[in-house]
Amino acid sequence: MQSSHATRRTMLILLWASLPLAGASAQPAEEPPPGPQPAPAKPQAEPIPPPSNPETPVTAAALSAPAPSSEGRRLYRKACAPCHGIRGDGEGPAARFLDPPPRDFTTGNYKFRSTPSGAVPLTEDLIRTVSEGIPGTFMPRWKEHLSGAEIAQVVEYLRELSPRFREEVPERVVPPADSLAPPESTEELIRRGEVLYRELQCTKCHGDAGRGDGPSAAELRDDLGRPILPTDFGAGRFRGGARPEDLYRTMVSGLSGTPMPAYGESIAEERDRWALAHYLRSLRRPGGVAGYLFGPQTPWE
């Protein structure tokens, strides 16, 4: 009896020891990514720009290094595919219990952009979203787990998942974040922001006090017909980022695929854009003990 146990244990050890070899031999060398293949000779519609967010650990040096899509694909499969799916269609095995659902990368539609509503985003937009995550969702802050070079490779692969990135040359409508100079928040700016908030009828969706409870809130649907709630500014959780420059970008470019329009033309004055951004930030209310205990949680925060 004892010897059969010993034999079994030895066989187990051998089996497990042999697994890495089996796995290494099973790894495909240069399998092309799914979907339409990029033409190698054709230049990218948009070169990878230097980082716009100084907090994002992606340097120009890293971005200028070659980012082979096979590495991006490998990282995508490890980190992104469980939710977004192997094909990038948002139908990963974990997708059905995630709310909001994971993005379908094959359409090229992205909420958080520096480009006009409905246009494909800039590479820096994708890098920012992957790096910073999306608060209030399961999309984590990947800069805590992947290096800047790795994020650049993943983003390069994301661009391969939709042919729109090869066909469209997006126009920038929001200046790079590092070229923006948000003014200090003042009482005067906040008052001006409040006036704009009412003039632009933000109250219809977001409510008088910015709690996301406007008269239209219950009827809102995204482009796929799913119910969608307006942001509760009081919770202070902005999916596109909570810095003044993040709110500026969201106001100007809107959130594609949602009822949130682009207000770039409606708020032409630079000062007014900052005024509204500061006003929205001023609506954040302290959570207190009740907020800590019973408030909504972002899993990875």
Binding site: L19, G23, R74, L75, K143, E144, L146, S147, G148, Q153
Partner: peptide, 23 residues
């Protein structure tokens, strides 16, 4: 801490337990 450019091998921090495509 946010990872630096000089971080070692790609994907070293993130482990998925995959040994190839099928195992």
């Amino acid at each position: 801490a946010p990872r630096e450019e000089a971080a070692p091998a790609v994907g070293s921090l993130f482990l998925d337990g995959q040994l190839g495509e099928h195992v």
